[in-house]
Design a protein around this nucleic acid. Structure first.
Length: 651
DNA sequence: GCAAGGTC
């Protein structure tokens, strides 16, 4: 009898792609009880491992199981929330996944082995274990292996198919630990603070005040910036500006000391300049300079750019990206990888874009010798390549948002395959009295990737007139300027995403959800930047040119600029919660990212065999229960903070 | 009613 092998991927698209490669195209497709999932049957020779086999390739759709507390813990008050730190947990297959689980058990019957094709990351390992559990229900004697693959190139998949490895129980345990901790801690604190603050009445009487290890630090970032804006005290500074008109160009020389906060000192130094009458050119340098092309596109970067330039929020951007992915236009949109695998045929992808009338000519130039291998970033999630267009899509076939995001992904990809922009920079330094001043001019020589990447610009060609080393001249004008430091702006969505990313809050797939969550809970709200006069833009190191500032960061603002971007303001409830927990004075307040970081480190320890699941659970639960008890004792502080901000409208 | 992580 012929050997049967059951293969299971993490999502239907991978099952389809792998089945395509292994079958060589001769495949029989059948439906399952789930609309999105199909079974692919074909023949494949696994070589030494199992030889010539009949294969059924199918998939799950992310995690297969869920966790919950037993029904006696349904009530929010009895037993008290702290009992959730030790209450028994049950694991089960939710209703909407039962057809998937049954399909796996059914296909496992009569199979010799289960071959797991989930993503090669921690969550994927855990999902693989969930698949294993279900498959063993259908066939106790199943041999279990997993494929090790990091992209879906044909040769790579064939190689993975013939070299199966074992599931890594450490990674499975690390994820199981995270799941349990998030559940216990999230439910316990959510019930505690909701119950507690309900007693204050008013707008809090009906509110759901959730706590989560990701949503709270996200709120914390917004509140932190809010106070920095609110508490900002402007300071007056003075500077010296020297101007020389030459060849019809007004050349402004900036002071090497930039600015001083003491007026009298600036006046003394300025008078010495005037006494000297003449300035001397002490340095003239000319050098090549470049504007570097972007790194291959990750999810976080896509979200940052979409919130900055396309006027979408991160959640809209992800929804649109998923639609484009499901329609087959772009690659998988959830990835941390910012380097393309060397074996990928990038030119074939560029070729497909030649027909477009917006960037087709640029793509054509890449095909005719302009192609350069993309830069290689340092991140590789070992599961997905950087986001890129996989087929050409004419502008008519998409909604407005889909069209704009597809355009961005494509332009970004073509920019990656192009070359850095090149220019020449001239720096001139002068001495005037005892003071030094400098200026520089740039000429863009080759725009290269900038021609397709319309989101960026290189503030063009500030030509300098000729200055010669050692020459002496009398400046056209010298003056003292006065300015004031300005407050930082409130957080914008790209700022917030960058902070979450840097602090390990959430994943590529969930960061947008956490931001949406704290809006939904009314911990924060957004409004177009500049609605309120209080916030300036995000620079506080204004050039010494006085108050009239042009705004925007040089070079970073493209054709569609950052204009109209939203800023995040905490609600009074958001401010009150963070203030309350900070006041309770825990070394690591719940609103800070440290607790989440610690959890990340502990998961790593489990993966590397330095700790066990039981060690980490025991230690973390003890630690969080102590924090919980501190909060319970500090209830009055939390309540008074909410009274002050929410009910009495402080701040 | 409550988390965060997958995915459609």
């Amino acid at each position: 009898m012929v050997t049967k092998i059951l293969c299971v991927a993490e999502k239907s698209s991978i099952a389809k792609a792998v089945a395509g490669h292994l079958s060589g195209g001769r495949v029989e497709t059948s439906n399952t009880g789930n609309t999105y999932i199909k079974n692919y049957k074909f023949q494949f020779d696994f070589g030494r491992t199992w030889g010539h086999c009949e294969v059924c390739m199918t998939s799950v759709s992310g995690h297969l199981s869920a966790v919950d507390f037993a029904s006696e813990y349904k009530n929010w008050s009895h037993p008290p929330p702290e009992s959730l730190f030790g209450a028994p947990i049950r694991e089960f297959v939710p209703e909407d996944k039962s057809a998937i689980a049954q399909n796996i058990a059914a296909q496992a019957r009569g199979a010799k082995a289960l071959f797991i094709w989930t993503d090669c990351d921690r969550e994927g390992e855990h999902i693989g274990n969930e698949v294993k559990t279900e498959a063993l229900k259908g066939n106790r004697r199943l041999q279990v292996k997993r494929a090790k693959f990091s992209n879906i190139e044909r040769a790579h998949i064939l190689q993975a198919a013939r070299n199966p490895i074992d599931l890594d129980d450490r990674q499975v345990n690390a994820v199981a630990t995270r799941i349990e901790l998030d559940l216990r801690i999230g439910y316990a604190f959510t019930r505690f603070q909701t119950n507690l603050l309900r007693t204050l009445g008013g707008p809090l009487a009906e509110a759901m005040i959730s706590y989560g290890s990701c949503q709270f630090p996200t709120l914390g970032f917004v509140v932190d910036r809010y106070w920095r804006v609110k508490n900002f005290v402007p300071e007056t500074f003075w500077s010296i500006k020297v101007t020389q008109k030459r060849e019809g160009i007004n050349v402004v020389f900036n002071w090497k000391r930039n600015r001083l906060f003491d007026r009298a000192t600036v006046i003394i130094l300025f008078e010495r300049c005037l006494d000297a009458k003449r300035a001397k050119v002490t340095k003239v340098t000319e050098k090549g300079t470049r504007r570097i092309k972007p790194l291959p596109l990750t999810t976080v970067e896509l979200q940052k750019m979409a919130t900055k330039y396309l006027r979408m929020n991160s959640q809209q951007a992800m929804t649109v990206a998923e639609t484009l992915y499901n329609k087959g236009y772009i690659s998988y949109p959830r990835t941390e990888t910012d380097r393309f695998d060397k074996e990928m045929d990038l030119k074939a992808l560029v070729q497909k874009q030649i027909q477009d009338n917006r960037w087709g000519e640029f793509a054509n130039n890449l095909m005719n010798g302009g192609f350069n291998q993309p830069r290689e970033g340092r991140h590789d999630d070992k599961a997905h390549p950087p986001i890129h267009p996989v087929t050409y899509c004419a502008p008519g076939g998409l909604s407005a948002d889909e069209g704009r995001l597809y355009e961005f992904v494509t332009r970004h990809f073509l920019a990656c395959c192009s070359e850095d922009a090149k220019g020449a920079q001239t720096d001139v330094e002068i001495e005037y009295g005892d003071e030094s001043f400098h200026t520089h001019g740039t000429i863009v020589l080759e725009r290269n990737f900038l021609d397709v990447y319309v989101y960026q610009n290189w503030t063009n060609s500030t030509m300098l007139p000729k200055f010669t080393l050692g020459e002496v001249f009398e400046p056209t004008e010298a003056m003292i300027t006065e300015g004031k430091t300005t407050a930082p702006g409130y957080l914008t969505e790209p700022d917030l995403l960058a902070l979450m990313d840097a602090n390990g809050i959430g994943t590529d797939a969930t960061m947008a959800e956490h931001i949406a969550k704290i809006k939904e809970r009314v911990y924060v709200f957004t409004r177009p930047r500049g609605t309120n006069a209080a916030g300036g833009d995000s620079q506080d190191d204004a050039p010494a040119a006085g108050r009239g500032r042009s705004g925007g960061r040089a070079g970073a603002v493209g054709a569609r600029g950052g204009a109209g971007i939203d800023e995040f303001i905490p609600s009074s409830l958001g401010v009150a919660l963070v203030d309350g927990y900070d006041q309770i004075g825990l070394e690591s307040s719940l609103s800070k990212p440290f607790l989440r970081k610690e959890m990340e480190l502990k998961m790593k320890a489990i993966c590397e065999g330095r700790a066990t699941r039981e060690d980490v659970l025991q230690e973390s639960l003890r630690q969080y229960k102590r924090v919980f008890m501190d909060c319970k004792e500090g209830s009055a502080v939390l309540k008074s903070s909410c009274r002050r901000f929410v009910l009495n409208g402080a701040a």
